[in-house]
Amino acid sequence: MRSARLKGHLDALVLAVLADQPAHGYAILTALKLRTGNSVDLEGGTLYPTLHRLEAAGLISSDWSASGGRRRRVYTIEDKGRRVLADERSLWQEFVQALQPLLGPPLDGGATR
């Protein structure tokens, strides 16, 4: 699933990954891929602007750290980000519940009227 199909959910996905632990860009990409069973395959070119936008909005913060002789920019979720993530999660639940009867698997085994 590429970024175009994730439009509107990208912020929440990134926040969800960062809610577990601080991470740098590549680690976020990898976590997204792993945790969605390779379904979400985001490009770095899409991720970084999203991270910078979330940071500008105060939802996450970043710090430069040196590890293994390399400077890495590590992102951490802020309290405001956690609140936004909680809101996004409940909105997502509502969304799925609302559309499940229409788009979910038919309960009667596929018979249509």
């Binding site: 490009e43 770095g44 070119g45 899409t46 970084y48 602007p49 910078h52 936008r53 500008a56």
Partner: peptide
Amino acid sequence: RDFGDPEVAAYSFGEALRDTARN
């Protein structure tokens, strides 16, 4: 390839950089 087309990425980055600078 995982990173994506650098020319397309540059455009998105440019927007982000401009926003950051303006901010």
